[in-house]
């Protein structure tokens, strides 16, 4: 019996403050030991706690993949959509019901390969969405294939001789596409990540946080980078906090420096503000404010 088991003995009345935010009836989750996704969810919950968010008014939308399963564990209105399409789903949800805080929570392959077009257009529109991308640099759910974020020289199941395609620099892409807020952290930076999340809950417009996260099962192991703990040591050692750093200089490599911090925080009118001002300018009093909820006298929703 290992030492760990003695330490991990949990009293029966123990209460974890994240529980009310999670669908505890769905535990245990599917993520591997050492995976960073759960860490990001802890930060997300802490950010919700700290910001005193009304969970009835927070909706979370995920795509497909390991991170795509986050929506399924979040105890709020939660949508597990199709591969790559969390952002356009979230766009419709937000526009129909602007009082919702709509969070898109998905992985790098989902958001930047199959969903890349939607990402840049939502950023261009400055749609009021909070996009959290857990970047494990690989397609994990399907067994470790190359992603547009896999750094050069890493090996994957579909690049057994090494990746030679240049990778996306997500923070630079997000800035260029028009995001109002761009930050990057790793799963080592739990305090900073939670604070960043709290910050974007308060900020209007398209906000983007990249979280570098280990996939011990498929990325670390194949690339001889050790387990989850090794990844934390690497993140600790290689990370440099440089707020406001030019995003074009923040590309990630296989084992090099990781520039983290808040890179972009700017104010642009968001989509709905732009829509309204254009319509008022063109139509004046003829403009009717959107009223999209189904008018239904028979609705007796008790809330």
């Amino acid at each position: 019996m290992s030492e760990m088991e003695c330490v991990m003995e949990i009293p029966e009345d123990a209460f974890n403050p994240v529980e009310p935010f999670l669908r505890m009836d769905r535990m245990p989750h599917i993520w591997c030991a050492g995976c960073g996704i759960g860490t990001t969810v802890n930060c997300f919950v802490r950010a919700l706690l700290n910001s005193k968010a009304d969970l009835d008014k927070v909706a979370i939308v995920s795509g497909i993949g390991c991170t795509g399963r986050v929506a399924g564990y979040a105890q709020m209105d939660s949508f597990h959509t199709t591969h790559g399409r969390a952002i356009p789903f979230a766009t419709g949800l937000k526009l129909a019901n602007p009082e919702l805080q709509v969070v898109v929570y998905s992985g790098d392959g989902d958001l930047f390969a199959i969903g890349g077009n939607h990402f840049i257009h939502a950023a261009r529109r400055n749609m009021d969405l909070k996009v959290i991308c857990v970047n494990n640099m690989i397609y994990a759910m399907t067994g470790g294939q190359s992603a547009p974020t896999t750094p050069g020289h890493a090996t994957t199941s579909t690049a057994p001789y090494g990746v030679f395609e240049p990778a996306f620099n997500l923070v630079s892409l997000a800035e260029a596409a028009g995001a109002s807020y761009v930050a990057r952290w790793t799963t080592y930076h739990v305090m900073q990540l939670a604070r960043s999340m709290e910050e974007i809950f308060k900020k209007k417009g398209f906000c983007f946080i990249e979280v570098l996260s280990p996939c011990p099962t498929l990325y670390q192991r194949r690339n001889k980078m050790g387990d989850g703990l090794e990844a934390m040591k690497y993140y600790k050692k290689a990370s440099k906090i440089r707020h406001g750093a030019p995003t074009s200089e923040c590309a990630l490599t296989k084992d090099g420096e990781i520039v983290v911090g808040k890179f972009v925080d700017r104010d642009r009118p968001d989509y709905l503000e732009l829509l309204r001002s254009q319509m008022v300018e063109s139509l004046g009093e003829r403009y009717a404010e959107p009223e999209m909820a189904c008018e239904d006298a028979e609705v007796t929703c008790s809330l």
């Binding site: 939308v61 209105d77 949508f79 959509t81 199709t82 790559g84 399409r85 952002i87 356009p88 789903f89 979230a90 766009t91 419709g92 949800l93 937000k94 526009l95 129909a96 019901n97 919702l100 077009n117 939607h118 257009h121 999209m292 909820a293 189904c294």
Partner: peptide
Amino acid sequence: LAASIAIQGAVWGGAK
């Protein structure tokens, strides 16, 4: 792809 899923987000937001 975006159009056909955006409408479904809107439906769950309460719109037709």
